[in-house]
Design a protein around this nucleic acid. Structure first.
Lengths: 218, 218
DNA sequence: TTTTGTAACATTGTATACAATTATACGTGT
DNA sequence: ACACGTATAATTGTATACAATGTTACAAAA
């Protein structure tokens, strides 16, 4: 997804950013020529980028007419979190079934490091480690499709996660939850691991909701 | 997704079909010009279609070089079924929380009709009703994102589902499971509905596996 | 005033032309 | 025979030109 076809990727990332950031709001009309001029490219890469955004569901194209921003509402974000919670639950189970020594070592290392940074208050590092913890779980689950889907969700949610995980209390709690999940996986307690993994994400939702980060919007 | 931008949609559907059908096999190289000639279009719609396939994960493009078919392995299909099981579980819960009288009526109608066709042995109708039953559950869940994701999965799986559901025993069993799920939803027994919805999909996997439909492939 | 038809314009859809990059073939030197 | 470099071809990336479709403005008729 990362800037592969140079201009198409560039335009895609830029448009996606602008939609998620709210520069283009719901029902806004995306005109190929205007975007092409703004980004100093031709219509071709713009069209290709729009086709991808359409596929992702961020815009809707009406043939021969225009393409409109669908956008992503607060409710959508919550819904994605819910889906992610369900899939992380599945992921925990599959991680137990397919765990390798190598990945288990890395996971333990990450949790240890997280606890360390946690005490030092280095929350930037914790966000990075949080990402790696989950990515490793996806890898452990050994399912390309699961990984693909969860990564998609991740992209949607990253922006919000940054603002939330930087909250001290949530970071501390998240790290502990990672530790507990890993513990359950290590002892092959599938039910517990599933429950904890699901709850871990639900707690994120609740945390965001409690902070009122998205009250009043949309 | 259905043939919107006329040529791009046409090429997209055709390529997707050909990949899923096995005309293009794993690691095959897709050349834009060859495809364009074969389908009597220019490279532009071909490129747009390829960008979408890439996004969907069916092909991988290496810039300035070529795009290769990733394809979908038997393991991928199983993995998607697992994910679908998890999300149908979530869907059942959300359906209970957001059910409307209107949708509940339609669901009951579908189950009744299914039972009827089941006795008559009209399995084509049952496949159609099976689709509508699940689509209605997605609608009841009232989550655009969930619906979008489950529909994506559905597309991947539709080909296999056709061969499986046409088996008499599985059709009969599936209809009964739909009835039980609906029962649980109606009585707002969330845990039971979730369990049944998840198990319903897992049973599909097991059924396919038992039939040996994909032994020996890939 | 409202409606309707038409012409000009704007926008998207498609094809083609050109640029950039990569693969291939071939010849040369060792 | 083998390695290497260069030229040629093949393929993708991008821009532009043209066609098809839809929108808008405005005038004429009811």
């Amino acid at each position: 997804m990362d800037n592969k076809h140079s201009l198409t990727g560039f335009v895609f990332n830029r448009l996606r950013e602008d939609i998620l950031n709210g520069k283009y709001k719901e029902n806004d009309e995306l005109k190929e020529m205007a975007i092409a001029k703004e980004l100093n490219v031709s219509r071709t890469p713009v069209r290709e980028a729009i086709r991808q955004l359409e596929f992702e569901g961020l815009v809707e194209s009406i043939p021969n007419k225009a393409t409109y921003v669908i956008g992503i509402s607060i409710k959508d974000v919550k819904d994605i979190y819910e889906m992610r919670a369900s899939l992380e639950r599945l992921c925990a189970k599959k991680a137990i079934d397919n765990m390798t020594d190598d990945i288990m070592e890395k996971l333990e290392e990450i949790v240890d490091l997280s606890m360390f940074y946690n005490e030092k208050g280095k929350y930037d590092n914790i966000l990075e480690l949080d990402n790696r913890f989950h990515e490793l779980l996806y890898e452990a689950a050994n399912s390309k499709m699961l990984r693909h889907t969860l990564s998609d969700f991740h992209h949607y949610l990253q922006r919000i996660r940054h603002t939330t995980l930087s909250g001290e209390t949530r970071a501390k709690q998240a790290v502990c939850e990672h530790r507990d999940i890993l513990e359950a996986i290590k002892s092959k307690d599938t039910d517990r691991a599933m429950m904890l993994a699901e709850q871990h994400i639900i707690n994120s939702i609740n945390n965001i909701e409690r902070l009122g980060l998205w009250t009043g919007e949309q």
